[in-house]
Design a protein around this nucleic acid. Structure first.
Lengths: 153, 153
DNA sequence: GCTTGACCTCCAGTTAAGTCGAGGTTGTTT
DNA sequence: AAACAACCTCGACTTAACTGGAGGTCAAGC
């Protein structure tokens, strides 16, 4: 029974997580993950970093920004194994956003499907039709300088 | 009963869709939408462009890239009102991707929730645990130069 | 004790998705 | 016909999220 290594090198983390080492340093710089250093200044990661990474990548995959992720992870203690309460807090704060996105996806999918089924081409009762003329409200876009201050009314 | 205008100016489209005019030109450049021109070289959009825009924004919102969207929309006739068969084709090609993303979102959400419920901190039977050591396989990342050729076995 | 590969930092470059502004044209209204 | 908003193009800039390379350390094997 060989003991599992306590700490992982950046290379090991990269391999196990599938996240390139360059990205790992980048995430660290952004405060998404943390590491300790050896006497010789090399990074050593506790294994729970793998969990954070899985979390980060999944979140990104569904369109959340690193900033979003950062905000969420900020509610966890930065480099200790999180407690139940920690995850709970995180979960709470995300539930709404995730639900909203799941909803958006469903709508997108259903829109496509029912658009075909309902004969939306005649523009009568199609879900899409409803959407056509609405404000898109907020949306995507890299440049977040002016968050399109659309508060009001 | 005033007749609806056949064609919309870029400003009108921007306002109705909520998509900035700069983005509209950008989308056109990328082949996501199309317009006709007046004698004086100004853009005139048929109203079904609004539908495309709603589609584009929704897709982006859930983390799909413009390239993805472009590929999908490419299966539609470029600036004619799409037929039933057109939408059907598009729908088919997306169903899988959308389902996958919905799934990913669900997993992300459930992971959070059940992680709290299941006492994953002891690392026994947590969903997350399962994830920890897996290859993240493909993932996000802006630079798509080398798509991380991970085919094989 | 030296070589070799894994690490380190720092900085420049890239992609996606837009935004912004300059300098010039259109079109609508008065 | 003059004013003025709305359009046009084109090129430079921005943000997010990374990648890559130069130039220098660390460490594990021989």
């Amino acid at each position: 029974m060989s003991k599992l290594p306590e700490m992982l090198t950046i290379g090991q983390v990269a391999e196990r997580s599938g996240v390139p080492h360059t990205a790992l340093r980048f995430y660290e710089e952004r405060g998404l993950i943390a590491s300790e250093r050896t006497a010789g200044n090399q990074r050593r990661y506790p294994r729970h970093v793998l969990r954070r990474l899985a979390f980060i990548r999944t979140a990104q995959r569904v369109g959340l920004s690193l900033e979003d992720v950062h905000a969420a992870l900020a509610t966890l203690p930065d480099n200790r194994t999180p407690t139940k309460a920690d995850w709970s807090r995180l979960s709470q704060s995300w539930q709404a956003e995730l639900d909203a996105r799941i909803d958006a996806l469903h709508r997108l999918r259903d829109r496509l499907t029912s658009c075909i089924g309902c004969g939306c081409l005649s523009l009568r009762s199609c879900l899409l039709h409803n959407l056509d003329d609405q404000q898109a409200a907020d949306g995507p876009g890299a440049p977040k300088l002016k968050p399109a201050v659309e508060g009001g009314t």
